[in-house]
Amino acid sequence: MARVTFREERCKGCELCIAVCPEKIIVLAEHINAMGFHPATVVEQEKCKGCAMCARMCPDVVIEVEREVAEA
């Protein structure tokens, strides 16, 4: 189980996250945000591996990633 969240209002639609997602589950939304960009969004959340590749490449620190981890 993993979850990615996008701070949509900060996304500049640069698509760097889209290119690196191994599951190809990130797309640009149809709508535009307050800055005038089509923000990135995840379509099939359940396929997310929590690898954080998207977040690592995002130049605007839009993405947060949570992942199921074994209780310490």
Binding site: P59, V61, R67
Partner: peptide, 28 residues
Amino acid sequence: MMKKVFTRPKALTDKPFHYCPGCTHGII
């Protein structure tokens, strides 16, 4: 348990960067 594995570092303020879309200044 769900744990944040990637989040905004505390040593950044919350101000959005002014850089152009996709400019890697932001990553650095």
